[in-house]
Amino acid sequence: MTAPETIPDPTFRPRMRGFAARAGLEQAWAWIDARSSARAAETVETREAVDRHAASDIAAECDLPPADRVAADGFAVRAADTVGASDYNPIPLELTGEPMAVSVGDAVPPGTDAVAAVDQIRSDFGMIELVASVAEGEGIERRGDDVGAGTIVLAAGRRIRASDAALLAALGIDTVAVVRRPVVRIVPVGRDVGNGGDLNSPMLAALVERDGGIADRRPAVPDDLIALGAALAEPGADLILLAGGSGLGGTDRSAEALAAAGSLDIHGVALRPADSLALGMAGGTPVVILPGRPARCFAGYEAVAGRAVRRMAGGDPGFPFPQATLVTARKIVSPGGWSDFCRVRLAGEGRVEPIGSGGLASLSSVVRADGFVLVPADREGYPAGSTVTVHLFDPGAGA
């Protein structure tokens, strides 16, 4: 791997010769970060904003609740009239005035300052008795207790949840400015589609949509400079993913096509098992060339391309997985000098074991994995018994 401050000359043509050098994973991230800022804002209905990122701070324009209201089912009372009430000294509510039954959300009746909840009263022989004293304000939600006018309820960049949308609706906010979802063009390259059909496009489309993008799936194009150039030249995408043709074979022409269409800035990344990954620009649009083999394509997307989608969608560029600190049940082998996307599975009792690392990667190893450990380039793996950070594919897997 080259020194961090040096990016290998992307004009070197590795076909049938091998890469002269590979950029570090951090260099690939820096390239992505410099070219994938959040898209412009657009306004959508609040219900359509769920899972989108707020484009700016959202402030309450009114108090919530807008007036004092009942917060418990029961009877409205004056707190002073309930002093001394207990199981042994019940106070008939009739002695405090006409009993006023109230429900959650009702306006507080004039002349009352508390609510005796259902479990604080007893009804015997048609008489309603209070069996506990009630403090002033008990069972009442005051104006602005939940949210005060002017309060920032959602900060810019927040991924809006269903509960957030409910709060916005309660505040009378019908529309929200959110970051526009980036359009990501997905182009499988012909030779790597193979006899089994296009395996990469449906996988990449699901990952793009998970990360907040709009997947624009295109038919496979052949390993042909003219066809590849046309796919790269078409406008309308915020990011282009070419799946295949990135490697060292005599018919791998995706990187060459990108160089001709604009710029090939990085070709070859010290990332196992996606080392042939390439980055460049075509008509002002960032392009990521991913390996054609599905497991390698998956690793390349998760480690590099997904970062661009998440940034463009206004989200956190980091891995979108929960993390768990676990102990290696077996040694994780890595040669050093490479970042290693090591697939792992849970082994019980807080332990984890590798099921795939290195340049050879099968799709089944990804399917069987519970997550991955990203071994940094400055380590030669982890011995058994090491504490490692595991990125879990399933949020509940490490529980």
Rank of each mutant, 00 (worst) to 15 (best):
I173E: 00
D174M: 08
D174L: 11
D174A: 15
D174H: 06
D174K: 15
T175W: 08
T175L: 09
T175H: 15
T175C: 06
V176R: 01
V176W: 06
V176T: 01
V176K: 01
A177Q: 10
A177L: 05
A177M: 04
A177C: 09
A177I: 01
V178R: 03
V178G: 03
V179P: 03
V179E: 04
V179S: 08
V179W: 01
R180L: 05
R180V: 03
R180K: 13
R180P: 02
R181L: 07
R181Y: 04
R181P: 04
P182E: 11
P182K: 11
V183P: 03
V184P: 01
V184Y: 01
R185Q: 07
R185V: 03
I186C: 01
I186E: 00
V187F: 00
P188T: 05
P188L: 01
V189Y: 06
V189W: 06
R191M: 00
R191S: 11
D192K: 06
V193F: 06
V193Q: 01
V193L: 03
V193P: 05
G194A: 10
G194L: 11
G194W: 02
G196K: 04
G196R: 10
G197A: 07
D198F: 03
D198S: 00
L199W: 06
N200M: 02
S201A: 11
P202Y: 00
P202W: 02
M203S: 03
M203L: 09
M203N: 09
A206T: 07
A206M: 08
L207W: 08
L207N: 02
L207R: 08
V208Q: 02
E209G: 07
E209A: 02
R210M: 11
D211A: 14
D211R: 04
D211I: 07
G212S: 12
G213V: 12
G213Q: 06
G213D: 10
I214C: 06
I214Q: 07
I214H: 11
A215L: 06
A215V: 07
A215W: 04
D216H: 10
D216V: 02
D216W: 12
R217E: 05
R218E: 08
P219H: 06
P219R: 08
P219M: 04
A220I: 03
A220F: 12
A220P: 05
A220H: 05
A220G: 15
A220K: 07
V221I: 03
V221H: 03
P222T: 10
P222S: 15
P222M: 10
D223S: 15
D223N: 15
D223M: 10
D224M: 04
L225I: 14
L225E: 13
L225D: 09
I226Y: 12
I226H: 09
A227T: 12
L228I: 13
L228M: 12
L228S: 11
G229V: 14
G229F: 12
A230I: 10
A230H: 13
A230T: 09
A231C: 04
A231M: 07
A231S: 13
A231K: 05
A231Q: 07
L232H: 06
L232Y: 08
L232M: 09
L232G: 02
A233E: 15
A233Q: 15
A233P: 14
E234K: 11
E234S: 13
P235N: 14
P235D: 15
P235M: 15
G236I: 10
G236R: 14
G236H: 14
A237C: 15
A237L: 13
D238I: 14
L239K: 05
I240N: 12
I240D: 08
L241Y: 12
L241G: 12
L241P: 07
